[in-house]
Structure formats: structure tokens, C-alpha cells
Amino acid sequence: MTYLLRVTLIALALLTTVSCSSKRMLTPDRTLHASIQSDRAQMQQAIVKTLVARGWTVQKITPQLVQAQITVREQYHAEIDIPYSANHYQIAYRDSSGLDYKDGKIHKNYIRWVRLLDKGIVRELKDHQNERTARQLSESALAKPL
């Protein structure tokens, strides 16, 4: 009986470990808050800058789409599409290897990479907005006579 109990516990531990490494697919679909003013070129620049900063390779850029890929330790590979407009973008899964994609679930590393991209793009857009606001304020202050 002890042997059967050990085998059962080991099997449960293995199943728990396997199930923890796969998570439900994440596809950020973000519409910018009205306080962040952006045009299509600024959106494209924020997306590309974030991809490069995070180690992704940009494969293709069009006025409506950025395609990128990443390979980590020659073991994990993911490809994404990012359709975008002036105030909206989506990070969509295209393909992968080594990330165990199956039935809408994928390795937790992919989820982390996509979350970091999403946060980075928003941060870039906010930074650009803050720079523009600061520039406008300084220009208006310089234009006023003392």
C-alpha cells in the first residue's frame, strides 16, 4: 500500500507542476485613455521601441501592423502580431515553439513577455505625452513677457 501511495503522490506532484507552467493565453487589447494623445506614428514608435528594449526582433512594420519574434536560450520562440491605430493596439499570438501552446494555453514565460510589452508600450506613450506637455508649458512660459 505504501508503494501505491508514493506513486500516486509523485504523479499528482508531476501533474501539478505541469499544469502550473501553462496558463490561459493572454491577448492584450488596449484602447488608450483619453488623457494620452497619440497619432499612428507615435503609436508605431512606442511599439517598436518597447519591442527592441525587451529583446524582440521586429520582422515587419506597416502603417497598421508590427510583427515581431523572440527566441530565448535557443529553446523558447514566440511570434506576435500587433495591429494598431492612433489610440488602440492588440498583442496577438501568431506562432511559437517550445512554449507548449495547446487549447488556448501557453507557457507562463510567454504570458510574462506579453504583459511586459503591454506595460512598456503604455509607459512609452505616457512618457511621450509628458514630454510634449512639458515642452508646451515651457514654450508658453517663454512666450509670456515678464
Rank of each mutant, 00 (worst) to 15 (best):
H128W: 06
I106G: 04
V48W: 05
Y89L: 06
E79V: 02
R54Y: 06
T16M: 12
P83T: 10
L125Y: 03
T133M: 13
P145C: 08
R24N: 10
L4V: 06
R40W: 00
E74K: 11
L125P: 03
H77Q: 15
A141G: 00
R30S: 14
V72H: 12
T62I: 09
A13Y: 09
A86P: 00
A11F: 06
A41W: 03
A46F: 03
L117C: 13
N87Q: 13
I121D: 10
H77T: 15
S96T: 03
L4G: 00
H77W: 15
R24F: 03
K144Q: 15
G104E: 06
D127A: 09
V48M: 09
M43L: 07
T133G: 00
S19M: 10
H77K: 13
H77S: 13
M43R: 05
S35P: 01
Q59H: 04
E79T: 04
R123T: 06
I70V: 10
K126C: 02
L32V: 05
A34E: 14
K108F: 15
K144R: 14
T17Y: 15
Q69R: 06
S85M: 01
A92Y: 00
T50A: 15
T62E: 15
R54F: 00
Q67V: 12
D95H: 07
L14D: 01
L12M: 13
A134W: 12
I121F: 04
T71V: 12
K60A: 06
G98C: 05
T8S: 11
E131T: 13
S21K: 06
V72L: 15
H128M: 12
V52Q: 14
L65Q: 09
D118K: 09
S85K: 08
N130S: 11
Y110Q: 09
K49D: 14
R24H: 06
G120V: 08
